[in-house]
């Protein structure tokens, strides 16, 4: 438990490039709000969906960039700072070490998503039923956890590929399209809808929208469960990939190669 919690927090403080106040506020708080406004005004102009669609969608999406980049930094920066070898030499459970790293990003993602939702509500005037807030908190938390696990998968790729930032940037941008947060899913081709079913955020965004429209928590619980299931699947995949890429990096003597 100590390795999972304290280890995770220490690695967050050491490895997350965006933890400084300027980066945190500029990139993680202000950036997503402007993204929300951009799509909300685009949606207003085109008349595709109402403000609520974009506010809720972008609030859920706000957690993804942080968790994806954070998960990647949790692995990539170890190599950059020359400490990856020390981590991999540790006799402790590798699984606990990496999962512990994802948890602070999930908490942080929840905070950013909640901030974006509140700012969207205040700036564009979205009415949210008081009873929906606990369900929304659970939905945002499930999205943040799933995204953090997905971030670890990207982090695993950072062990193998040099252009990890390119992978991260591309993935975050593709999530805008595939998750249906900014484009109604019914207007996407079938293969994009199918792909969207297997990425984080999609089910959470759908559940959050239903909650804002007055649905009960019980009716959206299956979708939250799907989101958590996807997160668990990505966590397992991350564990496997980290083991495979670690072994390959040792074999090729490329562990610390930048």
């Amino acid at each position: 438990m100590r390795l999972l919690t304290i280890g995770g927090v220490i690695s967050y403080r050491a490895l997350f490039n965006w933890a400084t106040p300027a980066m945190f506020i500029g990139t993680l708080l202000v950036g997503p709000v402007f993204q929300l406004l951009f799509f909300a005004y685009l949606g207003r102009q085109l008349g595709v969906a109402d403000d609520g669609f974009y506010i809720v969608g972008n609030a859920v999406l706000a957690a993804s960039a942080l968790c994806l980049f954070g998960g990647s930094m949790a692995v990539l920066n170890e190599r950059r700072f020359g400490t990856l070898g020390h981590v991999l030499l540790s006799p402790r459970s590798r699984t606990l070490t990496w999962i512990g790293r994802a948890l602070p990003y999930a908490g942080n993602g929840l905070l950013v998503a909640a901030f974006t939702l509140v700012m969207g509500k205040l700036l564009l005037g979205l009415p949210i039923p008081a009873g929906a807030w606990p369900g929304l908190a659970a939905t945002l938390a499930s999205a943040a956890l799933a995204c953090a696990a997905f971030g670890l998968v990207l982090g695993a790729f950072a062990l193998r590929f040099r252009d990890a930032w390119l992978i991260n940037n591309t993935t975050v941008t593709l999530m805008v399209l595939f998750s249906g947060t900014n484009v109604p899913r019914e207007s996407l081709p079938g293969w994009m809808q199918a792909a969207g079913n297997f990425i984080p955020v999609t089910h959470a965004a759908s559940a959050a929208r239903s909650l804002v429209h007055g649905a009960s928590f019980g009716s959206v619980a299956p979708r939250i469960g799907q989101e958590l299931l996807i997160g668990a699947a990505y966590a397992v995949l991350a564990g496997v990939l980290l083991k495979v890429f670690e072994a390959e990096s040792r074999r090729r003597a490329s562990l610390d190669t930048l």
Binding site: T20, M23, I25, G26, T27, V30, G31, F34, L37, F38
Partner: peptide, 16 residues
């Protein structure tokens, strides 16, 4: 010192 933060922040506002 944190020009990157401003870069990240300025992308969407200028698009908009």
């Amino acid at each position: 010192r944190n020009a990157n933060a401003l870069c990240n922040t300025l992308e969407y506002p200028i698009w908009l």
